[in-house]
C-alpha cells in the first residue's frame, strides 16, 4: 500500500514534532521552566542564572543527546535492514550494540580517554557485525533471515559474557558503577564534552549514507542483482556497514546499549514513506529522534529515580518485534 501522505509532508510534520517536542522537553523536569523563561534564556536575554544553568548544562545537552542517539540508532537500523534484506535486524539484534559496548567497556576498564573509548567501541561493533555476517553466510539450508538474527543473538551474548568478565575484573568503587549504569542505557550522565565527541562521529557515518542513499535501494535487491545493475556490492556493503556501525558505536559510547529503537523506527518509517531509502533514511532518523526524546523525557520524570532507557524502549519494542515476527508479512 502506498502512503497517503506526501513524503515532504511527512518529513515536515516529523521535523515540527521534533522541534516542538524538544521545546516542551526543555520545560519539564524537577525544576520547571516556564515557556517565556525558556524563550528568554534561548535568546540570551535570560535574567535567572539558575534557569541558564539547568537549561544549558543539564537539559539541553540531554535533549540533544536523545535526538542524536535516537536518530543514529534508527538510521543504522534502516541501513542494516536494507543491506541484509532482513526487516528483523537492528544494531542491537545483530549484536553490534553489545560488541560496541564491550569495546567501550574495555576502554573504561583501561581508563582510556574518550576518543580511544570511541575507537574501541567502533572496532568492537565492526568485529561483531563481521562475525555475525560470516557465521550467517556459512550456515546453509535454513531460513537465512532467521539465521542472521540467531547468529546476531549468539555473538551478542558472547560479547555480553566478555562484558560480565570485565565487570568482575574492574574496580568495584570506580569503574564498576560506571560500566554497569552505562550498560543499562541512559542519557542521565551525558556531558556536553561527550556530546561534542560523539556528534562528529555520527555525522561522519551519515555522510556516506546520504551520498549513497539511492544506491542503498539496489543493495536491498541482493548482491547478484546489484552487480548486474552495475554496482560492486562487496565494496559498497563494506562502506554501508562501516558507516552504520560507526554511528552505532558513537552513540553507544555516550548512551550505553539502548535496544529496539533501531528495529522499530525503520518499520514505522517504511509504513509512512515506503522503502525508498532516499525518503526512508530521513523519516526513520526523525522518528528515532522524536521517539527517544519522548522516552527519555518520560524516563527522567517518571519517578524519583531515573528509569534506564533500555527498560522503557524494550516495553515498546518487544511487543512490536513479536508482532512483526508473527504477522508473517511477506513484503515490507
Amino acid at each position: 500500500m502506498r502512503p497517503k501522505l506526501k513524503t515532504s509532508t511527512v518529513i515536515m510534520l516529523l521535523s515540527m514534532i521534533v522541534v516542538a517536542g524538544s521545546l516542551i522537553a526543555a520545560t519539564v523536569g524537577p525544576y520547571t521552566i516556564e515557556l517565556p523563561q525558556l524563550a528568554a534564556a534561548l535568546l540570551g536575554q535570560g535574567s535567572d542564572p539558575t534557569v541558564d544553568t539547568v537549561l544549558f548544562n543539564v537539559r539541553l545537552p540531554r535533549i540533544a543527546a536523545s535526538l542524536l542517539v535516537g536518530a543514529a540508532l534508527a538510521g543504522a537500523g534502516t541501513v542494516y535492514q536494507g543491506l541484509f534484506r532482513n526487516p528483523l535486524v537492528s544494531p542491537d539484534i545483530l549484536g553490534v550494540s553489545a560488541g560496541a559496548g564491550l569495546g567501550a567497556a574495555a576502554g573504561i576498564f583501561l581508563s582510556l580517554p574518550i576518543l580511544a573509548i570511541q575507537g574501541l567501541s567502533f572496532i568492537g561493533g565492526l568485529t561483531t557485525v563481521a562475525l555475525v555476517y560470516l557465521v550467517a553466510r556459512s550456515v546453509r539450508g535454513h531460513e537465512p533471515g532467521l539465521v542472521l538474527v540467531l547468529s546476531g543473538v549468539v555473538i551478542g551474548a558472547l560479547a555480553g559474557a566478555c562484558l560480565s568478565l570485565l565487570k568482575i575484573l574492574s574496580d568495584p568503587y570506580d569503574q564498576l558503577p560506571a560500566i554497569t549504569f552505562w550498560l543499562l542505557g541512559s542519557l542521565a550522565n551525558v556531558t556536553p564534552q561527550e556530546l561534542l565527541s560523539a556528534t562528529p562521529a555520527v555525522f561522519a557515518g551519515l555522510v556516506p549514507l546520504v551520498l549513497l542513499r539511492w544506491r542503498m535501494n539496489l543493495m536491498a535487491l541482493g548482491d547478484e542483482e546489484a552487480a548486474s545493475l552495475g554496482l560492486s556490492p562487496a565494496r559498497l556493503r563494506l562502506v554501508f556497514i562501516c558507516a552504520a556501525t560507526l554511528m552505532t558505536a558513537a552513540v553507544v559510547t555516550i548512551a550505553g546499549v539502548i535496544g529496539w529503537v533501531g528495529l522499530v523506527m525503520p518499520h514505522i518509517a517504511r509504513l509512512l514513506v515506503g522503502p525508498n531509502f532516499q525518503r526512508l533514511l530521513p523519516a526513520a532518523m526523525l522518528l528515532g529522534a522524536a521517539y527517544l526524546l519522548l522516552v527519555d523525557t518520560v524516563a527522567r520524570n517518571l519517578g524519583q529515580a531515573e528509569t534506564p532507557l533500555g527498560i522503557l524502549t524494550a516495553f515498546v519494542g518487544g511487543p512490536v518485534f513479536l508482532w512483526l515476527l508473527t504477522s508473517g508479512r511477506r513484503a515490507w
Binding site: N86, L212, W214, N217, L229, G230, P275, N276, W332
Partner: peptide, 24 residues
Amino acid sequence: GVFAYSVHEMVLMGRNVHQGLFSG
C-alpha cells in the same frame, strides 16, 4: 522481493549505470 518498492522505483533502478555514484 523483500521490500515493497513501487514498480516505477524498481524500473528506475535499471538506470543505475547512467547516474553518478552519489546522485539519484
